[in-house]
Design a binder for these strands. Structure first.
Lengths: 151, 151
DNA sequence: TTTGAAATGCCACCGGC
DNA sequence: GCCGGTGGCATTTCAAA
């Protein structure tokens, strides 16, 4: 993991984490080097794969997705993992899926419009996936932290 | 929640979710309307708050953060929630925190460099937060889905 | 790694439809 | 809602140090 990052790189990264469309020249003026230099540093950071891309962030609430929930899924056998994931990928409300140690085999994060939709998603979409034995659901009532790891 | 989005808006959004720095004019050429029109649509979507911003995405693995874990936290009493969150905010490895129904009061997502760091984080940083009674940890061995809600 | 300069391309704002 | 035009910037590349 030989990626070395100095203070200027940190400023560049932090400005672009706040707003990925910040003009490079405005960062250049802030740190006091030329735009070309910023540009080359960015390319280096991309080549190193530290920068994985940039994303427009949507607010799910504006689309009506007001409920966030986590669901732990018990599988009948570990061998059903791959096929279960395939099915989960087809459910748009599933925004994260992990294979975890501990209680469950699969652990997912989902967004729903309301509790009726959540119930429908659980009973109709998730519970009916082949291999799914049982689920445990935790509804997020409040999210206080949502950030990236710091450089 | 009166935000109506047509096919062109969807294309704009999806292109910018893939790469937030995509030039507006290249989207304009793709959909066959002028850059000015794309620009106006984007402004409308920003005003509607559907677009919450844009972010540079870092790859935590390149920084050495190879372990993702979820930790359920039991609190001695719900009244310690606010102060516990305050302490969690000071732990950079904590990237998400939720107040959840079900077993735990607080549910967090953390990134660590390895299992030793994870243990240290749990025993030294998290367990010692005032009000934290007990924790349950789930390590993610594999993440197969990571996306935003679709428009 | 940095710089300035140059070519190219983009953005953001109009007035008008 | 969309367009074309425009002036001012931004991006990208290059040779040079």
């Amino acid at each position: 993991m030989g990626v070395k990052i100095d203070g200027i790189d940190k400023i560049i990264i932090n400005r672009l984490i706040e707003d990925a469309r910040t003009p490079i020249l405005s960062i250049a003026r802030e740190v006091g080097i030329s735009g070309a230099a910023i540009h080359q540093r960015l390319r280096k950071l991309e080549v190193s794969k530290l920068i994985a891309g940039s994303q427009l962030m949507l607010d799910p609430k504006v689309l009506g997705y007001t409920t966030t929930a986590f669901v732990g899924i018990f599988l009948e056998s570990a061998s059903m993992y791959a096929s279960a994931i395939k099915r989960l990928k087809n459910i748009p409300e599933v925004v994260e899926s992990h294979y975890t140690t501990g209680n469950w085999a699969i652990f997912i994060k989902i967004l729903c419009k309301n509790n009726t939709d959540l119930m429908h998603l659980l009973n109709h979409d998730i519970q009916r996936i082949k291999g799914v034995a049982r689920t445990e659901t935790f509804i997020s009532l409040d999210q206080q932290i949502n950030r990236q790891i710091k450089v």
